[in-house]
Amino acid sequence: MSSREKILADIKRNKPAEVAIPSFEFTATTYDNVVTKYMETLLGIGGNCNVVKDLTEVNKILSTLVKDQEVVIGISELGGYNASEYAFKDAAALEGVDTVVIEGNYAVAENASIWIPEKNMVNRMLPFICQHLIIVVNESDVVSNMHEAYARIKVDEDGYGAFIAGPFKTADIEQSLVIGAHGPLSLNVFIISADK
């Protein structure tokens, strides 16, 4: 008997009587002003957030932020889109990337995470290997909690996707929090205002 058959047979023999799948019997907290809550939560975990009018404003801010550095722009509506050049580069070739700008699909107010599917990343390495990460998300896509987020996304639509909440961090040395363990040292989020 293969291990697979043995394990499955042992489980069948030893498992408890069937228990019905539960429905959620709680009311998830929602926030009246999700953007304010989102900004507050992100600040608390070491990220920065700005509400901007449109992508033109993001462009303006980007031009003041980065100089003489390797910047990957992954949003085609932004000036200087160049992510397609990076689609198949390997880790060694990406090591020098300073800043990555990508779009987030949904931002979650309760924990400041943002859902980013693979297609937005262009290359799975990019949001991890860069020194600074910038995520742009629409105000209408800010939701209160994880239940609302999962109701909107299809986790297997792309081969890979992640909720990203703030810059990398570690507290492994005597519980002292250090921002930027292996990956990005900073996270900036731009929320594109719904008021036009």
């Binding site: 924990n111 693979e118 239940h147 890979y160 996707g161 992640a162 909720f163 909440a165």
Partner: peptide, 28 residues
């Protein structure tokens, strides 16, 4: 996952969520 990810990091370290919650479905 919505239930487990809301509980996991809060129970572990008091963070609202881990920095990365990565979903792997197909190899690149």
């Amino acid at each position: 996952l919505s239930v487990f990810l809301r509980l996991l990091a809060r129970s572990a370290t008091g963070q609202p969520i881990t920095t990365y919650s990565s979903h792997f479905h197909r190899p690149k």
